[in-house]
Each structure stands twice: as C-alpha cells, then as structure tokens.
Amino acid sequence: MSDALRVRDVRVELGGQRVLEDVSFDVARGEFCCLCGPNGGGKTTLLKAALGLAPLTGGRIEVLGRAPALARREVGYLPQAKGFNPGFPARAVELILANQRGAWPLRVSAAERELARAALARVGGERLLDAPLRGLSGGETQRVFLARAIVNDPALLLLDEPTAGVDARGRGEFLDLLAGVAARDDVAAVLVTHNAAAARRLADRVVYLECRVRAWGPPAEVLDREWDKDAFHGRDHAAPPDPSCEEE
C-alpha cells in the first residue's frame, strides 16, 4: 500500500524566492507527523504543495499514491489563516456539508444535517451546528473547520497550526481531540505546530523544516536537538542559515 504522503526532492519558489529546497520525507498510513521549524521555514507552503495549491519548481509529491490535485477529496485540510468571506451568511452546518457536497448547500436534508451533526460531535462542537460562522470564537471556529476536515472520513489530515488563536483551555481541549486522531490507525496526519508539548504528545515522528529538512525522527530526539535550541532561544525569526533558501 502506498504511503499517505511521499515528498521527494521538492523545491518551491514563491515570488522569486526559494521557500523549499530538496525536501524529502514520507508519512506512512496511520502515522502522525509533526512539521516543526521557525517561521518562514516553509511548513505552510509544504502543506499547500501537498494540496496542489502551490506549484512545485522541482521534485514531486504523491498523496495516497496520486498527484495532489487528484487526491484532494480524500484529504482533510484545516487551514491556519481562515480566508473565508466574513460577510457571507454561513452557518457551521453549511460549511461542513459544502466539503461533503463540493457545493454550497442551499437546502439541507435531514440525513445531511445528521452527517454534519455527527462530524461536529466528534470534535465536541455539536451545539455549534446552526451557529453563524461570523459570531464564533477562535476555538469554536477551529472546531467547525476540523469537523469540516473530517466529514469525508479522510485518509490524510493536513492541520496547519490548529491551536493558533485559541486560548489555553481551548488549546488543551483541541490537543485532546487531535490525540484521538493520533490514536487511529486508519488516518495519517501532518500537523504544523510551534507547540513543542503538542509535538511531543502527538507525533510518531517530527520533521524539522527550515527550507530544507534539517532533522527528522522521533519527537524527543529531534526536538531536543533542533527546536529547543532554536525556537526557545531567539532563533525563531532569524534568517535561515542556508544561503540558497530565503524566508517566505
């Protein structure tokens, strides 16, 4: 069986700047991988490339054995920045079903409503079913978007800093939810995070990305060696050391 995600010699340039250089790693089915590294290290760009949203300058990416654009329906994606139109009259149930239908639901059947409710229940957000998106807190918004990501029972979850903008209590609850995902053997996940505790708790493996893959392996090993000395000691916003890579 093919890997959930296979990244080989990937290079990406955005606006003439090199963001990813010769990045290679695999994520097996059922594996929970954390992507760590400093800001501008290319983590979000790598997720976008895995979704077919960022064009590759070189190398290749396979998602569930296929080109990224062909595997999108089997991938659940939780974006870091929510780029939705805030003036749009959207409710949680509609957002979740839009991902299921591939179109905005102008009418919702009882069966569809139950499907959305079940997805929200899995992330502890059942009461948000009919809530307008524009009135939700950061944590509630993340729950609704996570329910959207899992409604199609994806084989691969791509989660981009899901606890950003969530308060401490909500962050703890959200990590519990992700721990539930991590325990499942049928779902692979790639989590972009700056939260070392989350990476230690959830990850089978950590990939430390700073334009290139600087380290990968078990969380304790990688985080002790790379993250702790960089992210917590002032290098988080420093220019990448590799001169061929430029900041995003």
């Binding site: 999108r72 994606y77 780029g83 139109n85």
Partner: peptide, 10 residues
C-alpha cells in the same frame, strides 16, 4: 464566493 481556496480543494 465563501472561500475560493476551500472551494478549489472541493
């Protein structure tokens, strides 16, 4: 109209 990126992914 709601979100071009999410719509593209769908």
């Amino acid at each position: 109209t709601f979100d071009p990126e999410l719509a593209t992914l769908s």
